[in-house]
C-alpha cells in the first residue's frame, strides 16, 4: 500500500471515528524514534510511551527505533528526511536538542518538524557542598558579582541545559554571562563527587539527581528553577529569592514535516489519550518525571520561545556565533 493510499485510508478512518465508537487512533501502528542510544532519557521516554500507548489503547502498536548521535541531531536529520508526510511516526526530543542543533551547526532544525506535544519536564537545581559559606541564592549571586572567575559551576555537557542555566544565573546576578566559569563533567556521578568533595563552588543538575544527597545533608540546595514552590520540596525558588531564573528540562514529541492537518490531529489525539491515561501516570510516578502535557498552538509557541532564548544564551557564552 502506498503512503498516499494509507493516508487516505487514515483520513477515512478518522472520519468514521466521528461516527463510530472505535477511536481511529486505536488502529494506529506507530513508529517512535528515540534520537539517542538505548538507556538514555529520550530512549526511556520513547519506550515508556510505547508501553503507555498500547496499554491505553491510544495506538494498536508502537515500535521504538534508536538513532543515536550528536545530541539527537543525527536522529533529527534522518527523521526530517524519512518521516516527511508520514502520519505514523513520532520522534522524542527535548531541551537538549534545541542547544545541540545550534552548537553542532546542524543543517536541519526544529522549524522543519511538526510540533505535537510537550510531555514531561524536570526542574533544575543549584547546590553547594554542605560546608560551603554560601547559604542562599543571594550569597551565590554576590560571589559571582564579586569575582565571576572564582565561582566554578559543575554540570553536564557544554551547551546543555546546565551550562545554559549557569550562564543565565550569572547574567541574572549582574555579572558578565560570557565569563561564567562552567566546568562540564562527563557523568552525573563524576560531577556529584566533585561537588561533594568541594572541588567546585556549586553544582547544577536536574532535581532528582541531587535529591538523595540533599536529604542526607551532604549538599545544600540553593534554589530551584520552577516558577512556583513545589509541595514536599523544602527549597525556595530562585524567583522568590529575587533572581529571575525559570527554566525546565522538558521532553516532547514531534511529527515529520509536511503532514496533513488530519494526520496532525490524529497524532495529537493519540498522544493526548496516552498522556491522560493511567498507564502514563504510572510511568511518570515510577520515573519521577513531572507531567507537563501541552499540545497544539501553545506548544508550538513554547518551542519557538525556547529556541530564541537558547540561541541568545549560547551566543552570549560564545558557543554559537
Amino acid at each position: 500500500m502506498s503512503w498516499s493510499k494509507r493516508a487516505t485510508l487514515r483520513g477515512l478512518l478518522i472520519a468514521a471515528a466521528a461516527l463510530s465508537a472505535v477511536p481511529a487512533s486505536a488502529q494506529m501502528e506507530l513508529k517512535i524514534i528515540a534520537p539517542a542510544a538505548p538507556g538514555g532519557g529520550w530512549d526511556q521516554t520513547a519506550r515508556s510511551m510505547q508501553q503507555a500507548m498500547t496499554a491505553s489503547g491510544a495506538a494498536k502498536s508502537a515500535q521504538v527505533t534508536n538513532i543515536p548521535g550528536a545530541g539527537g541531531t543525527v536522529g533529527l536529520a534522518q527523521f526530517v528526511n524519512t518521516a516527511k508526510g508520514d502520519g505514523n511516526t513520532l520522534m522524542v526530543n527535548g531541551f537538549v536538542m534545541v542547544g545541540a542543533i545550534l552548537t553542532n551547526k546542524s543543517p536541519v532544525n526544529l522549524d522543519q518538524v511538526t510540533p505535537i506535544a510537550k510531555l514531561t519536564e524536570e526542574m533544575q537545581i543549584i547546590v553547594v557542598p554542605a560546608n560551603s559559606p554560601i547559604k542562599t541564592a543571594k550569597d551565590l549571586a554576590d560571589a559571582v558579582k564579586k569575582d565571576v572567575s572564582k565561582v566554578t559551576f559543575a554540570g553536564g555537557s557544554a551547551g546543555g541545559v546546565d551550562h545554559i542555566m549557569a550562564a543565565l544565573f550569572t547574567g541574572a546576578a549582574g555579572a558578565d554571562a560570557a565569563k561564567v566559569n562552567y566546568v562540564p563533567f562527563s557523568g552525573g556521578g563524576e560531577s556529584l563527587a566533585a561537588i561533594i568533595g568541594g572541588k567546585v563552588t556549586a553544582g547544577i543538575s536536574g532535581y532528582a539527581e541531587y535529591e538523595g544527597q540533599i536529604k542526607s545533608g551532604r549538599l545544600r540546595a540553593i534554589g530551584i528553577t520552577s516558577a512556583e514552590r513545589r509541595a514536599g520540596i523544602d527549597v525556595p525558588t530562585f524567583k522568590e529569592q529575587g533572581i529571575d531564573l525559570v527554566i525546565t528540562n522538558w521532553r516532547s514529541v514531534v511529527a515529520g514535516p509536511g503532514i496533513t492537518a488530519a494526520q496532525k490531529k490524529a497524532l495529537e489525539d493519540a498522544v493526548e489519550k496516552m498522556a491522560k491515561s493511567a498507564a502514563w501516570k504510572d510511568v511518570l510516578k515510577q520515573k519521577g518525571w513531572d507531567d507537563a502535557f501541552v499540545s497544539g498552538d501553545a506548544f508550538t509557541k513554547f518551542l519557538k520561545d525556547e529556541q530564541t532564548r537558547v540561541r541568545k544564551v549560547l551566543s552570549e557564552v560564545g558557543l554559537v556565533k
Binding site: G69, A70, G71, T73, V74, T103, A158, H163, L319
Partner: peptide, 18 residues
C-alpha cells in the same frame, strides 16, 4: 565534540563524528 568547550574537532562537518 570537545567536552569542555563544545567545539567540534576533526569532524569535518560529519554529524556522526561529533
Amino acid at each position: 565534540i570537545d567536552k569542555l568547550t563544545g567545539q567540534a574537532r576533526l569532524s569535518f562537518g560529519v554529524p556522526e563524528l561529533l
